[in-house]
Design a protein around this nucleic acid. Sequence first.
DNA 1: CCCTGGTTATACCGATCGGTATACATCCAG
DNA 2: CTGGATGTATACCGATCGGTATAACCAGGG
Lengths: 185, 185
Amino acid sequence: MTPAGKRILDAAGGLFYREGINAVGVALVADTAGVTKKTLYDRFGSKDELVVHYLQRRHDDWWAYLDERLAAAAPPRTLVLIDAYVSHPGLEAARGCAFINAAAELPPGHAGWEVIRAHKRAVRTRLAELIAQDAPQADAEDLAEHVFLLIEGAIAHTGIDGGDGRVQKARDLAARLLREDARAG
Amino acid sequence: MTPAGKRILDAAGGLFYREGINAVGVALVADTAGVTKKTLYDRFGSKDELVVHYLQRRHDDWWAYLDERLAAAAPPRTLVLIDAYVSHPGLEAARGCAFINAAAELPPGHAGWEVIRAHKRAVRTRLAELIAQDAPQADAEDLAEHVFLLIEGAIAHTGIDGGDGRVQKARDLAARLLREDARAG
DNA sequence: CCCTGGTTATACCGATCGGTATACATCCAG
DNA sequence: CTGGATGTATACCGATCGGTATAACCAGGG
């Protein structure tokens, strides 16, 4: 990754997320990065490919942040995953989940869809693993889907409500589900 | 509402939902409606106002459909609300929730935001009323928020997964929560 | 020393964007 | 029978879109 390429990805990361993908032109991305359009097209080939790189980096960054938090955490680590959503520096409450937003904008067949689906699949899988550790008594798959829906509902509304209140609420509800499992057997 | 105005709203309803708001130009809306751009601007003044009308009508249509289904249903009517999401004719699984999609596209300050927030608030309020009837033993507000998050998580993923499987799952989980309340006391 | 890869600068392309202007047809109500 | 509202048809506007072309500059390595 050349220095200019990294600056382009930085600029695209901020602009696509904050303003929306379709609302941001390549010229604005290039200007913000302090780079000419020529350089942008030399590095990424097209806006569509730049969008794919933007989504992939968004996933990689958050995934690394999640691993970091999980490694340093005591059980129940399921709640750490939820905490990582609100605490990770790339999230802005007024804009919500970058992947849900992108899904609403990208046309069917766009290469970015693969990255979006892979991201959600990865989160869902990781959640199932954490649940299996935190709630050994429960039907782990069922509980994982339950908590996953709570999380997705909450972060989908982060951008609409403009705050992370619903994520906190989802965390409380998930914590109660885990507690109830601990009491059961 | 003039005949041409209604046709414009019909065309906009399909195009904005299926292709995305920013991806559809006013010329395409006018052509699809069999109407000139002049007529479109005579009726709606600007694309932004047309978008507001589109969202408002989307809400009104679904709300009327929901009332219809609720009137003819026996308890637990909470589940009827969830069923209305998947069964209402305007929803296409591959596109998911029109309001979540619009929220991802509209710039901050756009008049459409009021319609989006009002819609979600209305659903949330209605849900609380139904829960209060279906689960009189529970902390109704708490349970309403719980079920609301399940629903929103599921429909947010309808557009990503391309099917309503997660909504059905959310329905099952909500049904179990109601049953558990009935057992408790 | 010179060649190559990364970069800047600038100008350009056709297409499409949201929005406006002009002129003419139709039709219903006063 | 006439005037205003509703509509069609068409052409146009400046701005911006994604993407390309040409030319020069500069640093590092064979």
